[in-house]
Nucleic acid binder design. Structure first.
Lengths: 134, 134
DNA sequence: TTTTAAATGCAACTCAGTTGCATTTGTTTT
DNA sequence: AAAACAAATGCAACTGAGTTGCATTTAAAA
């Protein structure tokens, strides 16, 4: 399975191929952990407008290029790849030392029991601990 | 097992018994679902100062009267009771219709497998679906 | 009752994220 | 290849959650 280029990603999703988007996608493909707004700005030398970046993140999430992760910091982070949907679940590991967020395979798909009348649609898991670098 | 009063809670935790705190705790004890800053302001007729409320929430959380919950809205919610610690886990149910957050018993304590070098300390679970009222 | 420390209220601030609008760029049509 | 169109960008101003410093009040201790 060949690795897809940023251009191919944009074509496949039917989005315009702009410099900003290609740089963003290339960066996401390089990183093995989730990126915050600030991480991305820094990676792109702070040359990018705030609203442009946020709008691209929103669009990328909508079409499934990236997915948004909510750790406990109150700051959203984004990682490359489809959002975890039913049957394709994965968990997020938050390092308590360096705050880095990684996507990890979710092996045990837990079936929580909920009160009567409640219907479970999906389950999100956040694992907290220390990462390999800390 | 007798139900504890708000005064007793504050005494047990070694906190000063103020009107604001008693009103807050009484409200938390009444509600069966998590409360946001706005929920609490409304419940207290918007008579309370912003910083006072936030400082009390922070203190209550620190001593374990309430625990903070992070759903995906970016707005913190708080629920009565000890925070979920290891051996005392519970999950949070977020209704996708009304955005209400409930604490539910976590029956299956899942053991996610993480990459080599990663150490799991705790696992947080968010269940999404529809609640009994929706 | 006086003293002391902590809780409250107020105002000003920070920081993430959003919105409206003018300009530019990528893509489509002729 | 040029014109036309829609979507993407940049800018500025805004929103809303949460924080901080400081003066005043209140609960608890002496």
């Amino acid at each position: 399975m060949e690795k897809e280029s940023s251009i191919q990603v944009l074509e496949r999703k039917g989005l315009k191929k702009t410099k900003v988007r290609m740089a963003l996608i290339q960066h996401f493909m390089m990183m093995n952990h989730a990126q915050s707004y600030n991480d991305l700005q820094e990676a792109l030398s702070n040359e990018l407008d705030k609203s442009t970046l946020y709008r691209n993140l929103t669009n990328f999430e909508k079409v499934g290029i990236i997915h948004r992760i909510n750790d406990d910091t109150g700051v959203s982070k984004y990682a490359f790849g489809e959002p975890p949907i039913h049957g394709n679940e994965h968990a997020h590991f938050v390092c308590e030392d360096c705050e880095t967020v990684y996507c990890v395979e979710e092996l045990v798909p837990l079936q929580p029991n909920v009160p009567k009348g409640f219907k479970t649609k999906k389950v999100q898991t956040i694992i907290r601990g220390t990462c390999a670098d800390c």
